[in-house]
């Protein structure tokens, strides 16, 4: 059981990174980005390329990977989101499907289908309370928690955070107070891309990068957002951990002492989670009240 909890912590940290950034974007823009999984992979693959092919130091490769993620996100926002979301907030849903195909094709063309690990062979584990965990995984989990803490500080204790929350609550009211909402939209989308890139680096260090991961990552992030209450960043982060725990328990526990659910269904748990929440709690666990005049 301890091992399942540790696995959930590791998988949940990855999902929380991605879902956190995405929840911020959804809260502000109200648009779905279905190319999120591909943006995650781009961060991971670029870091792999800088570290394994160009042979830059790891820290420089990670910074390089994050910078490329930021540039790609900015490009995606300007071309695939910005010209469309003000016409109709559902248009980016279709344009980002197109974007996901283009990015999928580019990833396959440049990095091929074979799995890529940023740090191959760093899997030495040690035992803590009966659970096996590697030092790298501990660093990854702690890094995620630090990123979340910084995000919490910025959002809740700085003037910039207050502006962000104001735009999340009511775009036009915030603009009437002199907040440059369009600039914030752009900035937050780029930040969500950087968070996604960080998630890709996490994935490339903890596991392997393969193009098939893209879509399940996107859907899992949306499961967390929907379950957490659309636009509620902390709800999304909590639910990312919750979904990871449910995934681990679903396939790791002998149900009623009779059977195990096959491991092939593990990814399906997040999907069933979405279906369940949308049906019985369409506004999610932590739905925030929107202000209206």
């Amino acid at each position: 059981m301890t091992q399942l909890l540790v696995n959930a912590l590791i998988a949940g940290s990855l999902a929380a990174l991605i879902a956190g950034g995405l929840a911020l974007v959804y809260g502000v823009l109200g648009v779905f980005n279905l190319a999120l999984g591909q943006m995650v992979l781009i961060g991971g693959y670029c870091t792999w390329w800088l570290y394994q092919v160009v042979h830059l130091p790891l820290a420089v490769s990670i910074i390089g990977g994050l910078c490329i993620s930021a540039v790609v996100s900015w490009f995606c926002f300007e071309v695939f989101i910005n010209p469309f979301y003000k016409r109709h907030r559902f248009l980016p849903l279709v344009t980002t499907i197109a974007l996901s195909m283009i990015l999928d094709g580019l990833i396959l063309l440049f990095f091929k289908e074979t799995p890529k690990a940023i740090l191959p062979g760093v899997k030495n584990t040690f035992e803590v309370l009966g659970a096996h965990i590697s030092p790298v995984q501990i660093i990854l989990v702690l890094t995620t928690l630090c990123v979340m803490a910084v995000l919490a500080y910025v959002l809740h204790s700085t003037a910039f955070g207050r502006k962000v929350r104001a735009v999340v609550q009511h775009d036009h009211a915030a603009m009437s107070l002199g907040i440059r909402a369009p600039l914030l939209h752009r900035f937050l989308f780029i930040m969500s891309g950087v968070f996604a890139g960080l998630g890709g680096i996490y994935l490339g260090i903890d596991q392997n990068l393969t193009p098939v991961f893209a879509f399940p990552i996107t859907i899992k992030a949306y499961a967390a957002i929907i379950a957490g209450g659309k636009g509620n960043i902390w709800g999304a982060i909590i639910c990312a951990y919750l979904i990871a725990l449910v995934e681990q328990l679903a396939v790791g526990v002998q149900w009623f002492g009779l059977f195990y659910i096959p491991a092939g269904y593990q990814q399906t748990v997040a999907l069933v989670f979405i279906i369940f929440f949308l049906l019985f709690r369409p506004h999610g666990l932590f739905a925030s009240r929107s202000r209206s005049a």
């Binding site: 879509f215 399906t268 999907l271 069933v272 279906i275 949308l278």
Partner: peptide, 10 residues
């Protein structure tokens, strides 16, 4: 829309 994608994947 998101749920129907989930149904497809299930």
């Amino acid at each position: 829309g998101v749920m129907t994608i989930a149904v497809h994947l299930v």
